[in-house]
Structures are given as C-alpha cells and as structure tokens.
Simulated scan of single mutants.
Amino acid sequence: MALPTALAVQAIKNKPKVKVNSKVTTVVLSTALGLGVFFAGRAIWRSFKRNIREGQILKEGNPASFATQLNMAFENDNAFGWGTDEEAVYRTLEQIPNTSMMRRVQRAYKDLFGKNLASDLKNELSTQEFAIAQEIIHAKR
C-alpha cells in the first residue's frame, strides 16, 4: 500500500508547473472587475427606476398606476384562487387615453415588474380575449 501512495506523491512533485504571465492575470482580473461593476451598476439603476415608478403608483392617470392595475388584474384571486380578471384588463386599457400614454405604460410595466406587457397580455388572455385587448389598444390615437 505504501508503494502506490509514494508513487502518487512523487508524481505530484514532478508535475510540470504552469506559469501564468502577469499580463494575462491583469487582463483576467480587470475583465472580471469590469463585469462586476457593470452588473452592479445595472442592478442599482433598475432599482432606482423601480423606486421612482413605485412612488408614482398612487397618482391617478400615471403610467405606473395603469401598469399596476393591469398587473393586479393578471394576478386576480377570484373565488377559486386563479384566473385573470379580463374585465379589469379591458377597463384599464380603455382608460389609457392615447398611444403615447400606452407606450409609457409599457415602459412603466417593464420597470416595475421586469416583464413585457404585450407578452403578459398574450399569456394571460385567451386568443379571443387577446384580440379584443389588441383592438382596444389599436383604437387609440
């Protein structure tokens, strides 16, 4: 038993050494630092935007208010604990005055919930309900 262990120890000692150039180390470390700063800055910026939007939720007619109403309609807890309140979705979409405000609502929805409003509408509504929502949206000028 001692012989294989001794051979393993000898093989480890005789293993060729890998040398890394200091320039390579510097490049790798600076790249990692740059990526870390980028992702940290992006997280801080998203948090900042979300906080601003959350402060605007209670203002009537604000894009953040409409976005929150739509999200609440998607997360509706009815008697059975599941489902989307389609009527609330239609009512909220009808309250949005024009296409410019609709674009701002979409941006606010993205800032607040990190999701795309159009894809959530498509996922939450049936094909016929989605077509009705699209008609409401496209009727705006």
Rank of each mutant, 00 (worst) to 15 (best):
L58S: 08
H138Q: 14
L125E: 09
E87F: 10
F66M: 02
F38H: 10
K115S: 11
L125R: 03
L33G: 10
K23N: 05
M102H: 12
D85A: 14
L3F: 12
K13I: 00
Y90G: 03
G55D: 12
D111F: 00
S119E: 15
N21R: 09
G81M: 13
L7N: 15
A40I: 10
A64N: 10
T25S: 04
E94K: 02
R53G: 04
L58E: 08
V37Q: 03
R91L: 13
Y109P: 02
L70S: 02
I57A: 06
R141P: 01
E75I: 01
K49V: 10
Y109A: 00
R46M: 04
D77Y: 14
E87K: 15
K49W: 00
E124Q: 11
V20I: 05
F38M: 05
K17F: 05
A118W: 11
T84R: 00
I52Y: 07
L125S: 09
N71C: 08
T31D: 05
I12P: 00
M72L: 15
L3H: 11
N21A: 14
F38K: 07
A2K: 08
K110W: 07
V105S: 00
N76Q: 13
M102N: 04
E75H: 12
S22A: 11
I137Y: 08
F113M: 02
V105R: 00
Q10T: 00
I57C: 09
T25K: 05
L7A: 15
N123F: 10
T31H: 10
A8I: 08
I132L: 07
T92F: 15
F66S: 00
V20W: 03
T84K: 02
I52H: 04
A2C: 13
F74S: 02
N78E: 14
V20Y: 03
T99Y: 08
M72E: 09
K49A: 01
A133L: 00
T31Y: 10
K23F: 03
G81K: 02
